[in-house]
Nucleic acid binder design. Structure first.
Lengths: 214, 214
DNA sequence: ACCTGAACACCGTTCAAGT
DNA sequence: ACCTGAACACCGTTCAAGT
């Protein structure tokens, strides 16, 4: 019986790795376990840790791939809709929906800069929309950054433990305790708060516009 | 010449470490370098890594201490003011100010649950305020969580690199590019966006109240 | 109770060797 | 160009030994 042993050393005829496969596998890993290490990732890919360095710039490079993976799933086309107060919430809902599907990646992506072409295109479009509404450029950026902060915070809320607040023994917080007790499950809670905040933000845009043109 | 060599082994007469000193030193370290390791922390404290385990539960325990350090600096008393639309922004400004003073700790604190008595007292008071305004409990929690998400996102913005968005070569985003160019320095930018968002959120509270009681 | 020093498992990164 | 295997520095955690 001839054992066909695959060659184990040297360059394979066809590359076994590519950036997309690495990114997709890393996303799976984070979805499953909440974090990733390069050895774990390499194992899932059936490869040695050092092989990864031929395709990505170490751990931080993998995080970049994670960002690309989720960015690609956002619905940038949502911003083509009319009018602005349909387009903007539609985009941010898709933004949040992607993170709701992958909550555990959120903490990994909070610190770095946005470079994704699609996401940049979306923000470019939003700046244009806000300017059309009558905001001067500087004000448009303030509004946009404020909304962005809210959305990022809401995404983090998805990754948070079931309870955002926990009242230890001996601490008096009766109103908060009652309010916490009245909440539904975690997923519903986070979504309701997001929708509420989105409405508040849109009301805020209108108010800012009034103040800005007056 | 008699060399007075300090004893180096066994329990010291008086404990050299305590939780507050560990927390304060960890905060310094994160302020300086953006992160911390237990060996680094131990070195600053003039002690061996393993000594830390007599006072805190490893690395995650140190992160808890960091949370306590910053929570203690928030102005929970701000919520005693009147009326509500002075009290609430005053509290969140102090909340943000603490993180503005320690931006690099923010990414370390995003995932865990709030347990700090002072902060819980603040949220308890805010629930009460919102209920007095006429919100049912469930709605009050939605509003509060939305504002909290915005504030956390804004705190993260402080830790972010100078530019939140970066347009790579070949990517078309003329409006966004222009808007980015018009911005002032990072600190000013983040603060202006925060103040703008806070105004928007307050306008949103008013709008929600109208919708809720109508 | 509290600090030490050694030990362990694990991680990220580098690099020469192989095709 | 791309995978391997060994190597290195470093980290978090544990624990027996010492006072």
């Amino acid at each position: 019986m001839t054992q066909i042993t695959q060659r184990r050393v040297g360059r394979p005829r066809k590359a076994v790795l590519d950036r997309v496969r690495i990114g997709a596998t890393a996303l799976e890993l984070v979805d499953d376990s909440g974090d990733f290490t390069l050895p774990e990732l390499a194992q899932r890919l059936g490869v040695h840790t050092s092989s990864l360095y031929h395709h990505v710039d170490g751990r931080s490079g993998v995080i970049e791939l994670l960002r690309e993976q989720v960015s690609d799933q956002m619905d940038a086309a949502a911003l083509e809709r009319e009018p602005w107060d349909v387009a903007i919430p539609a985009f941010f809902r898709s933004y949040r929906a992607v993170f709701a599907a992958h909550p555990r990646v959120v903490p990994l992506l909070t610190t770095t800069t946005v470079r994704s072409p699609q996401v940049l295109a979306a923000y470019d479009r939003m700046v244009a929309l806000l300017e059309e509404l009558g905001f001067p450029v500087a004000r448009a950026m303030e509004v946009l950054t404020a909304v962005e902060s809210f959305v990022i915070g809401s995404a983090l809320d998805l990754a948070a433990p079931d309870v955002m607040w926990e009242i230890p023994e001996g601490v008096e917080a009766p109103r908060l305790a009652e309010a916490l007790a009245s909440q539904r499950d975690a997923a519903h809670r986070a979504e309701a708060a997001f929708e509420c905040g989105l409405r508040m933000m849109l009301a805020g845009v209108a108010a800012e516009l009034g103040a800005s043109t007056a």
